[in-house]
């Protein structure tokens, strides 16, 4: 693929159906290296389903999904496991394992994939906590003892523990107060530049979108309209216009560009 050599994710002609209802109808998407790509769309347009399909948790009803140039569905079991280890994911509610401490959650993928000493595991746990800005005493806490913002950070720490080049975030700032959300945006930008990450995030938070994303993909009519932020803002599609120029959008826009 000479014309798009740095494409990290390439989705072609994706079709998703639930019974008679077609959610994605020939959806195309390209995410390039080192960009923060935001996915937005109305409720029920299949944002989370798209994310799950890209992650290989759901088989597409049509079309192909490639990550780092490899198609999840055509890979062997071991090839698939290697591919899965090359990206990190945070789920909307954190999805930390509730019976394990934060430290054990972070160590879980490390223990599964490498034979490391306890000392090394503790060292790496400390690193990941420090990267996401959690205090060391959060390590011994259980997920239920954490605040919403800390859960999001702990989930990010777990997603980073295998040092992925690609990060998927599902609603990373939902349920956070504006200050915590802004801090999360800062953290994300910081990690993005320092660790050379490619980030794909599903979000409804326009502030986050304006502050962090290089490009935005909007799910409308079963397809994806992707463009730079400026391009999307001037898109004439009525839903996109309403989304980015509605009452709630104006404030976020003013704050960032005004």
């Amino acid at each position: 693929m000479p014309q798009d050599a740095q494409a990290v994710i390439r989705v072609r002609g994706l079709v998703t159906r639930f019974g008679a209802q077609t959610v994605h109808d020939g959806l195309d998407l390209v995410v390039r290296e080192h960009e923060i790509f935001g996915i937005v769309g109305g409720s029920g347009t299949g944002k989370s389903v798209l994310l799950r399909t890209i992650l290989g948790l759901r088989q597409p009803d049509g079309g192909t999904v490639e990550i780092f140039g490899r198609d999840m569905q055509s890979l062997s079991r071991s090839g698939r496991e290697t591919l899965v280890r090359s990206y990190g994911v945070t789920f909307q509610n954190g999805a930390l394992i509730s019976s394990l401490t934060v430290a054990q959650n972070i160590q879980l993928p490390l223990r599964e994939n490498f034979a490391l000493s306890e000392h090394t595991l503790d060292l790496l746990t400390g690193l990941n906590l420090a990267l996401v800005g959690l205090p060391p005493d959060a390590a011994a806490k259980f997920p239920a003892q954490l605040s919403g913002g800390m859960v999001k950070r702990a989930a990010l720490a777990r997603a980073l523990s295998l040092e992925p080049r690609l990060l998927f975030l599902d609603e990373p700032t939902s349920g956070l107060d504006p200050i915590s959300a802004a801090a999360f945006d800062q953290l994300l930008l910081y990690l993005h530049t320092q660790l050379q990450l490619t980030v794909v995030m599903v979000t409804h938070d326009l502030d986050t979108l304006f502050r962090t994303c290089n490009r935005v993909g909007v799910l409308v009519d079963g397809r994806m309209v992707s463009d730079t932020l400026e391009g999307i803002l001037s898109n004439p599609h009525p839903w996109i216009h309403e989304y980015f120029h509605g009452a709630r959008a104006r404030g976020a826009e003013l704050e960032t560009h005004g």
């Binding site: 401490t101 503790d122 060292l123 400390g126 690193l127 420090a130 990267l131 005493d137 390590a139 011994a140």
Partner: peptide, 11 residues
């Protein structure tokens, strides 16, 4: 980042 020291024992 904070200078990497020994982690306090986790449990």
């Amino acid at each position: 980042l904070a200078p990497p020291g020994e982690m306090s024992p986790i449990d």
